[in-house]
Nucleic acid binder design. Structure first.
Length: 269
DNA sequence: CTTGGGACCTGGCTGC
DNA sequence: TGCAGCCAGGTCCCAA
């Protein structure tokens, strides 16, 4: 499941292969994939455009193009961007041909992923909250914004308008590291707890980036290799296994229809 | 404004 | 062996 560290890894590993390259041919195999403009226009406008730079914002990957338009990709649950894959797969939804003969393949088992080609990228990413790893994001600004929210802290961390890029796995990991129960109301956290949570979020995300993302489901790096961040998971997707700190059995709880994993002993209500 | 629930989507798993 | 039903979760949409 691509969250911030996975999309960041894809951006980093794709950059040297696509920056400066020109799209020569686009093939779309899934009618629902392109959200804006129409599929035909999308292909027509993208051909001959050169990639100036890549940028990640939240879980969105943006290709800044020579025409000053932006190609935006969201991988959602199961999307992958593969560079010159050796094995063909039946989940290929689009193929981008580059002027050096390379192929960039968008594969998505669950067909939830989305592509946009837009002049104004704010239309797509404008509602996102701050980047958790940006220098402007401080424990103080987090504290101020949490005061206005009384939903469970887990739900607030998943709100992309509140903070961008955190998904279910890393929310669970950050809350465990900060020893905060996922059902705690966001505005009930003490200043110290918020400080711990802030540090935990950044630590969990940075560690996962250095491990090239977590391959719990279908996530693959552009070269087809898996990430290793999931080997460091302490509670995420580990229901019933012992807590690495105290040995208590990790519990699973549904919050907003999302599985939340936590240690009932280390993370008290 | 915040909040919570359902829909989208497919493949893997469970239980009968 | 076959199959219905559940589960996984990022985001949008809608109602309260």
């Amino acid at each position: 499941m691509p969250e911030l560290p996975e999309v960041e890894t894809i951006k980093n590993e794709l950059s040297p292969h696509v920056i400066g390259r020109q799209f020569t041919q686009i093939a779309i195999y899934d009618i629902k994939l392109v959200r804006q403009p129409s599929s035909g226009k999308f292909c027509q406008k993208l051909v001959r455009q050169r990639v100036n730079s890549l940028e990640r914002r939240g879980k969105y990957l943006m290709f800044h193009l020579s025409s000053s338009e932006t190609l935006i990709i969201h991988l959602k649950m199961a999307g992958a961007l593969l560079l010159n894959p050796k094995q063909p797969d039946c989940h290929t939804r689009a193929i981008f041909q580059l002027d050096n003969g390379s192929q960039l393949v968008f594969s998505d088992r669950r067909r939830l992923g989305a592509l946009w080609l837009v002049k104004n990228e704010q239309v797509i990413i404008g509602k996102l909250g701050p980047e958790p790893l940006a220098t402007e994001s401080t424990a103080e600004t987090l504290a101020k914004r949490l005061q206005k929210r009384q939903a469970p802290i887990k739900a607030v961390l998943l709100d992309q308008g509140f903070i961008a890029g955190i998904g279910n796995m890393y929310a669970d990991e950050a809350l465990f590291t900060a020893k905060i129960h996922p059902l705690r109301k966001a505005n009930s956290l003490s200043a110290q707890e918020i400080k711990n949570l802030y540090k935990s979020i950044r630590h969990v995300l940075r560690t996962a980036i250095s491990n090239k993302g977590a391959s719990v489901d279908t996530y693959k790096r552009p070269n087809g290799q898996l990430g290793t961040a999931h080997f460091n998971f302490r509670v995420a997707h580990r229901g019933g296994r012992p807590c690495p700190i105290c040995g208590t059995s990790i519990q699973r709880l549904a919050i907003r229809n999302r599985g939340s994993y936590f240690c009932p002993n280390c993370q008290r209500v």
